[in-house]
Design a protein around this nucleic acid. Structure first.
Lengths: 263, 263
DNA sequence: TGTTATGATTTTACTTGTAAAGTCATAATA
DNA sequence: TATTATGACTTTACAAGTAAAATCATAACA
């Protein structure tokens, strides 16, 4: 029923209009992303595609064609391909040899692997941050926690998700290790879409805020090892909530190209 | 003195022969690497360049030209560039915009960052491996330790370095997490050249072998948390030895193109 | 002598072209 | 009907070409 390919008639020397699988909405989402600050084309393509995957605009299983992306982003195929290669080594897309790239499916096994990595790196970041953060920076963490409480009172789960991300990212920043920063960034960000996907099915994250407070307190007390342990178990609990929610979902979203073809 | 560029005479319409900075030895090292198993050209280029950097054939600071690599490896520039982009995101080379790629310099600050990452990931790998390894696999670890002792008796530090790598890599394998595997692989392998570089300046690694035995014992006892702690402090000690040795070295190797031009 | 200007050269950054391999709809066949 | 064969079509994988930018040696000049 969702086969949108036109049957090729013999006189189809007319240029086909529906060579794309992507809806107009997704196309505008991709092309309207503000990446003007980036001068390099591959970096622009990288940010655009990653952003679209992160926000489930490019759903798991969706094929990503270099020709199509190039067309949408207004560049040639080469910089697009370069960005896809990078996204592949980071785990955002998967390369099927001679078939093309698809958005990495959202399966429990994969998420489990990411969590095992992020738990460890998040933990060490917290440990390092404890020694390296200034009072001012710790106050900034406190500010983020307050914002989280506000978002929770308003039941704004989307805002809360962003603030939770900011909290953890800021701790990683404080570790002052660019390499760690890069790896955590690309890995933990891949968890975002799983959280987005299960956002309504998880318990209200009041406990997360409590734990954030406890983590900050131990950072203030200057106990690096304790910070590490707490961050790790904090992530562990979050992991279980996500995986539980994912299991109670419709089987798995694969090749769900949300197409709106013209009338 | 080491300026090997020929002064361009007015009648230099002759094709220049020394357009390369790389010695014949390095060229043959690169082209003779056994990568025939790999069908994809970018993967071949990736392995070749990475291997050459790892073994200090391409020294820190060396510029890596895509045209030159393409020529040496017998392919066009496109797959070479793709491999360089990947090596850049992993930290092996550094991209100077509009200037080209150079082999990442071997500076203490960078090594420190890598160690912070690897310590954490190695630790979690050990923790996971403890639950997931079979008796047979643990015996394989024991075998590797025995080989290390033999290498040490023969004072074969190069063999020992390889065996030490194998030991740690095997533990990561046992964690059964491909993503973790990939990140540790690319990161910890970047430490290899630092170890190679300081190989004669460090104390004989008898203590490392003792610690390996202790780690294996705790894995056999099935105490994941203890394995993590021990692996982490094991890496920490190794880190300090390397960084100390590096500090007592000639300033820092940058642009040391070990050229042997024709007579 | 020291400093600035200049132009040839090199190298990336990006575009475009092409062959091979895989896919898929349709037709032929048992 | 079920299965296999066929061929048009799509898409990557790789090659090759070009323009802009940075570099560096040399020359002009104060």
């Amino acid at each position: 029923m969702n086969n949108q390919k036109t049957p090729q008639t013999i006189d189809s020397n007319v240029k086909r209009l529906d060579q794309s699988d992507l809806s107009l909405a997704v196309r505008s989402f991709l092309s309207n992303l503000d990446v003007n600050g980036e001068s390099r084309l591959p970096q622009r393509a990288y940010l655009a595609v990653r952003h679209a995957i992160r926000h489930l605009q490019l759903p798991p299983g969706q094929t990503v064609l270099e020709r199509e992306m190039a067309e949408i982003l207004g560049m040639s195929r080469t910089p697009v391909r370069e960005s896809l290669v990078r996204l592949e080594t980071e785990g955002w897309v998967r390369l099927m040899p001679r078939r093309g790239f698809i958005v990495a499916p959202l399966v429990a096994d994969d998420l489990q692997q990411i969590y095992e990595v992020v738990e460890a790196l998040d933990g060490v970041a917290g440990r390092l941050a404890t020694g390296r953060a200034t009072h001012q920076e710790l106050n900034q963490l406190e500010h983020l926690i307050e914002e989280q409480e506000k978002a929770l009172e308003l039941n704004d789960l989307l805002a809360w998700t962003e603030l939770d991300d900011q909290f953890h990212n800021y701790i990683v920043d404080l570790a002052q290790n660019p390499r760690l920063r890069g790896i955590v960034d690309s890995q933990s960000d891949q968890l975002y879409r799983a959280r987005l996907y299960t956002i309504g099915l998880r318990p209200k994250p009041t406990r997360s805020v409590t734990e954030h407070k406890a983590i900050l307190a131990v950072m203030r007390a200057g106990e690096p090892e304790a910070v590490r342990t707490m961050l790790q178990s904090h992530r562990y609990r979050a992991r279980n909530e996500i995986l539980d929610a994912l299991q109670s979902m419709p089987p798995l979203p694969e090749e769900t190209g949300n197409n709106e073809t013209f009338p």
